[in-house]
């Protein structure tokens, strides 16, 4: 009796030890990031103002605001979404609703995984070779956005496919039994019940696209432009590249300027991710079947 309970106490201690050890590792993973974010806020917070967001950079980008970069990012993200969302959703519909479980589908899945795994700078090279040179778009919003669209396509496909998969098969079978074609079933029953899940994926893609830098450096984003883009064949500034530029390429930038740019960028990205997560949780709480 006594020996056994001693063993139990020992086991409990060991277990608690491990518990604390793993907790520490988790915390250590998080703490540096918290410190970093706090530093960003502390050093960059002072420069953030409405003016900062909505005025042009001045004095060779050592002063002024970030408006052209902000607007350029909106352009690039919007055009990228126009290309990748329809394509990605359609691809996910094919994979989940039409494709059989065979080697061909497997190859498509491998291609998607690899598309997500190809380094962003290689996507940039592809964008230069294909869109800038071969298709003759030049360095433009269009070329940059298409490069980003292909790069983030897996995000849309994977999240859409997951929300399609969450719609129980019995609903499809009920529709097919009624004489609905596959497409009628998808349009009337599957998509309406997956659309909010798809939307969370799209928000995630916006966040991803906003932060990418390497793929747009040589395809459409410029270090500095004295004018705002008028169409998709213009070059543009972009927030992510602007951070790189003011942090490394411009001499005499006041300390708080790049911190401010980084803060705006990270705030945009985290805000969109948070919206996506909150939306997902809201949906999980809403029972539909």
């Amino acid at each position: 009796m006594f020996a056994e309970s001693a063993l139990n106490i020992r086991n409990k201690r060991v277990q608690n030890l491990f518990r604390i050890l793993f907790l520490m590792m988790t915390v250590l993973l998080i703490i540096p990031v918290v410190i970093i974010l706090a530093t960003l806020v502390a050093k960059g917070g002072s420069i953030i103002s409405i003016d900062f967001l909505f005025t042009d950079p001045t004095n060779g980008m050592t002063a002024g605001g970030i408006f052209p970069a902000l607007l350029g990012t909106v352009w690039i993200v919007a055009v990228a979404l126009l290309a990748s969302v329809p394509l990605g959703v359609a691809a996910a519909i094919y994979l989940n609703e039409y494709a059989g479980d065979n080697w061909f589908t497997r190859i498509i899945q491998l291609a998607i995984i690899n598309l997500a795994g190809v380094p962003s700078i290689v996507h940039a090279l592809f964008g230069v070779g294909a869109f800038v040179i071969f298709f003759g778009f030049g360095t433009s919003i269009l070329a940059a956005s298409l490069t980003l669209a292909i790069m983030t396509l897996p995000v849309v496909i994977v999240s859409t496919r997951e929300s399609l998969r969450a719609v129980p098969q019995a609903f499809r079978e009920a529709c097919w039994n009624m004489g609905a074609t596959r497409w009628q079933t998808i349009r009337r029953v599957v998509l309406p019940n997956a659309v909010s899940g798809i939307l969370t994926g799209v928000i995630l893609e916006v966040s991803r696209t906003t932060g990418e830098t390497a793929p747009i450096m040589f395809t459409g984003a410029a270090f500095f432009l004295p004018f705002l883009p008028q169409g998709v064949f213009d070059q543009t500034m972009a927030l992510s590249l602007h951070l790189f530029v003011v942090a490394t390429q411009v001499p005499g930038v006041p300390d708080n300027l790049p911190f401010g740019v980084a803060l705006v960028l990270i705030a945009m990205v985290l805000l969109m991710n948070s919206i996506s997560i909150a939306f997902r949780m809201y949906l999980r709480g809403k029972k539909k079947w």
Partner: peptide, 15 residues
């Protein structure tokens, strides 16, 4: 963890 994974690489470079 999901939010940490979302921080753009250019921000990490800047850090």
């Amino acid at each position: 963890v999901e939010l940490l994974a979302a921080i753009p690489s250019v921000v990490w470079g800047f850090i």
